[in-house]
Write a protein that binds this DNA or RNA. Structure first.
Length: 498
DNA sequence: AAAAAAC
């Protein structure tokens, strides 16, 4: 269906056309008329199918621009998503002159209070800060007619339910509720029953939960080798933009440090960083000034960044839903994408439950050899040089560079380069805290079986401590060996020059 | 179990 057939105001259609869209996606064609008719709507569709516009357009249409009160409220699970939604609503509503304001934590509340005095008709916010404004009486919701719960599966997760309930208490009971979600687990349906009145459910049927434009791969690897395997993949795949997911904030920090040390254009994003840092990193990534964005699940949901060609699950998500969201950051808006998930032997059960949910078997990917990684690096270097020559930045080196590229084959050139920089990537130590070992594993189980379980309370702590020590010893061994040849993995060819 | 979200 075309947008022009959806009874939308010409000012909105103009903005849609300017954004480059003519054909509405299924979720948009189905929900826009429903939202316009005023009923409560539950919309479920794959990520990347234009959910924001499917509530945004009808909400923008029904807002009265001559009325200075807040008439619509959009609640988002993360700050970045709130900002993104505000930007998109602003873009779509600019010819209708609708004022849209985002409010979220981590940024100056006084500035937000001033902005709220500017009479926005639509407010987009995260739960905590919305409540803060409500308590300060700097945000009044008594004229709100439409409430949108965006990415509701995440938001209605435990902890948020109460916040949302408290926010909704200040909204007139006659309001229309719109709930959008990529997945629709049972708790959501219960919540929907509680907050909504005879909602119409629009479920966009898709054979697969994950977009088929995403090629999904997995790499079997031990914890200690993941880092090197992943960087080799980077060299071979040369992603345009890549999202790299780690399980914890700390691991994201360490991964980022490690990637930077090896010369990759990487930055991290997670909830412990200042909001300023979070925004600036995201801005750089969106502008293509940053190639690798290392993230916790803060970046897993909803974020729409064009050009994300690869998603790497450095740590496999334990929650299968989270996998669907993470890889949904690529393969958006009709483009294709690639995801690679690293799986260690004790994580096979997570892999199974993910595949059960998505009904897609991840293809085993053979990690590239050092030689292949080298060729990838050379290709990238050549492209860089070519770009530099083209832009004129390297004009004065033009003949010299051309000669070099003529004279040497790829591997030799890289060897020369590395020698001159004395920068052998794998010699740069990278420390990443290992995942804690899962309890009750192999050898300990076997030992304890014959002894029986009755000593449980007593011996448990001891056994755990022992296993930790073992683990630490293993780690220090492997970090030693990163200086010399490592058993089981071939070293970098150009390493042993000294 | 971690992450996210208010100061």
């Amino acid at each position: 269906m075309k947008f022009s057939e959806l009874n939308l105001d010409s000012s909105l259609l103009q903005a849609v056309t300017e954004a480059g869209f003519t054909e509405a996606t299924p979720i948009q064609s189905e929900t826009i008329p429903l939202v316009l008719s005023g009923v409560d709507v539950i919309g479920q569709a794959q990520t990347g199918t234009g959910k924001t516009a499917s509530f945004g357009l009808p909400v923008l249409q029904t807002v009265n621009v001559d009325n200075p009160n807040v008439q619509a409220l959009v609640i988002s699970p993360t700050r970045e998503l709130a900002v993104q939604t505000q930007e998109e609503l602003h873009r779509l509503g600019k010819y209708r002159h609708v004022k849209v304001q985002a409010v979220y934590g981590g940024s100056d509340i006084r500035r937000q209070i001033k902005q709220l005095r500017n009479h926005p008709q639509i407010v987009v916010g995260t739960p905590g800060r919305l409540l803060d404004h409500i308590k300060r009486h700097t945000l009044k919701l008594e004229h709100v007619q439409k409430v949108v719960l965006d990415e509701a599966d995440e938001m209605l997760d435990m902890g948020f339910v109460e916040d949302i309930e408290n926010i909704l208490k200040t909204v007139p009971s006659t309001h229309q509720t719109l709930l959008y979600s990529a997945t629709m687990p049972k708790p959501i349906m219960r919540i929907a029953e509680k907050f909504m009145q005879e909602p119409k459910v629009v479920q966009i049927k898709s054979k697969e939960l994950t977009a088929d434009k995403i090629e999904q791969y997995m790499v079997r690897s031990k914890e200690f080798e993941k880092f090197n395997l992943m960087t080799r993949l980077f060299d071979v795949q040369q992603p345009e933009l890549a999202l790299v997911f780690g399980r914890t904030k700390r691991r994201v920090d360490e991964l980022t440090r490690g990637l930077k040390a090896r010369g990759y254009n990487a930055e991290g994003i997670h909830g412990d960083l200042s909001q300023q840092k979070r925004m600036s990193v995201l801005r750089q990534f969106k502008a293509g000034k940053l190639t690798y964005l290392v993230a916790t699940d803060v970046a897993a949901r909803g974020l729409d960044i064009s050009g994300v060609s690869h998603v790497y699950n450095y740590d496999i998500p334990q929650d299968p839903d989270s996998y669907v969201h993470r890889i949904g950051r690529t393969g958006r808006a009709g483009r294709s994408g690639i995801s690679v998930t690293f799986v260690s032997p004790n994580e096979m059960s997570y892999l199974r439950s993910i595949e059960q949910l998505t009904h897609v078997r991840m293809l085993p990917l053979k990690p590239p050899t050092d030689a292949q990684a080298l060729v990838g690096q050379v290709g990238a270097a050549k492209a860089e040089i070519a770009k530099g020559l083209q832009s004129g930045k390297l004009a004065k080196f033009e003949t010299a560079a051309a000669d070099l590229l003529e004279e040497y084959d790829a591997a030799t050139l890289v060897e020369l380069l590395l020698q001159s920089y004395s920068k052998d990537p794998e010699s740069i130590p990278v420390k990443i805290t290992p995942e804690r070992p899962l309890p009750n594993r192999n050898s300990r189980d076997r030992n304890s079986k014959s002894r029986g379980r009755r000593y449980n309370g007593h011996g448990g702590g001891n056994r755990d401590r022992r296993s930790n020590n073992n683990y630490r010893r293993n780690r220090s061994n492997s970090s030693h060996s990163s200086r010399g040849p490592r058993s089981g993995s071939q070293g970098f060819k150009i390493r042993h020059k000294d």
